[in-house]
Design a protein around this nucleic acid. Structure first.
Lengths: 132, 132
DNA sequence: AATAGAACCTCTAGTTACTAGAGGATCAAG
DNA sequence: CTTGATCCTCTAGTAACTAGAGGTTCTATT
């Protein structure tokens, strides 16, 4: 079986080296074996796990949520739909965030517009922002 | 002229007390005067500035961007449209974020659906997440 | 076998925007 | 003059990393 150095793992996963070490430190990635000279050595399973983590991160899951999802993979004595619930709650959070950002964008747009429609020499964005 | 204690300022601005002290520490809020017993005393201008900050925060501006906006208020020897540019850039950022979150929500939705359409006893969210 | 340079190690501290808590001082009212 | 609310400073913690110092190991070439 082939072993990877941390640099190779980083290249294969597109994850930075300090981040890999950080994930090991917070125990979201299993500890690596060590070479005689104390350098980390990884195998396939680490790569898989790391890709899983990065994919979840890209989906906006927190490391804590990811930890829960991993627990569900490892232990089978869970409600089979617990992962489902986590994903659904996260989806709800995301949809809510989109709504908030949208109304925020609307307000920003009108602020920006308030300047365009004005004289070219005086920008009243600051005074608009000052109105609470 | 009436002076406010930090607690009164907090109530009027709906900002927590440690946050007010924090804003003073990072010099985004001018230093308060002090009572004989070394307690902070504020006036109207502080309240206005604090409301401005909170409004900008609610719009998603970073403290650094807010600092820039404040500089623009204080010094008049700036391009009059610098504030405009900051707001426009921020609007762009927000719109981009919305797009990203939307495609993320789409993927999450299909992940969640992949379970609903399945047998009620096996949830395959984890295996879906594992496919990078 | 020696050496050079790339890659690795640990540890500390910094980032953003706060929040929490300890331990002690001050203020206003009765 | 005492009580209790409010205030003070200081340290440390949160999330998810990132950067840098100072030193070691690995690998390839001579």
């Amino acid at each position: 079986m082939l072993l990877l150095t941390i640099g190779q793992l980083a290249r294969l996963s597109h994850c930075k080296i300090p981040t890999i070490r950080y994930y090991e430190e917070i125990a979201i990635l299993p500890k690596a074996e060590r070479s005689e000279g104390n350098q980390r050595r990884y195998h396939e399973l680490h790569l898989q796990r790391l890709k899983f983590i990065l994919h979840c991160r890209a989906l906006g899951f927190s490391l804590d949520e990811i930890r829960q999802l991993i627990d569900l993979q490892v232990c089978t004595d869970h409600d089979p739909h617990e992962a489902h619930q986590i994903a659904e709650k996260h989806l709800k959070d995301v949809l809510l965030k989109i709504q908030q950002l949208q109304s925020l964008a609307d307000e920003l747009q009108s602020i920006v517009n308030s300047c365009n429609s004005d004289s070219p020499h005086r920008c009243n964005i600051l005074s608009v922002l000052n109105k609470s």
